[in-house]
């Protein structure tokens, strides 16, 4: 319990520890803490900003979607119209083609009929001549009777 040199020993020790703490401990820890504080504040800021950006992006995206929908609806409309038009055109074309084909077929048929008539006439003329030859049994001058027979055949 006596006061002695320990007093000064403690004072010196105290001074040394305070110096140590002041130089090697306090500033370093405090600096790290402040830096971290700054970092956290920055991080929170960034998060806020990101949230804001996200909102903006979402708005933009929904706008674009709306636009795209409208555009798509327009395109579909146009396509429908065009399809109707094409169908209409095709119908028109088909009708025209059918008409054309029908006319051609009729012409051909007529031609065939005429040819058949021609043939038939020739054949009938021959047959009539042969018949008349046999009926008359006489040799008739082919030249004088020919015009007669042809007149007959033309009446058929």
């Amino acid at each position: 319990m006596n006061i002695n040199l320990t007093l000064f020993g403690q004072m010196v020790t105290f001074a040394f520890f305070v110096w140590f703490c002041m130089k090697f401990v306090w500033p370093i820890i405090l600096q790290a803490m402040e830096e971290r504080q700054q970092k956290i504040a920055d991080g929170l800021d960034a998060a806020d900003r990101a949230l804001h950006d996200l909102e903006q992006a979402q708005n933009k995206a929904s706008d674009q979607m709306q636009e795209a929908k409208q555009e798509a609806a327009g395109i579909i409309d146009q396509a429908n119209k065009r399809a109707v038009q094409i169908i209409e055109e095709a119908k028109q074309q088909a009708v025209t083609e059918g008409e054309r084909l029908k006319v051609a077929a009729q012409a051909e048929i007529e031609q065939e009929v005429n040819r058949a008539k021609e043939e038939l006439r020739a054949t009938v003329a021959g047959l009539a001549l042969a018949g008349a030859e046999k009926v008359l049994e006489a040799s008739i001058d082919e030249k004088s009777n020919r015009a007669l027979v042809d007149k007959l055949a033309a009446q058929l």
């Binding site: 002695n4 320990t6 403690q10």
Partner: peptide, 21 residues
């Protein structure tokens, strides 16, 4: 008298101070 040192007090105090440091 005054010319003495409390070895235990000083040793524990310095030791604990070193632990702190």
């Amino acid at each position: 008298g005054f010319m003495a040192i409390h070895v235990d007090s000083l040793a524990w105090s310095i030791g604990l101070g070193l632990i702190f440091c």
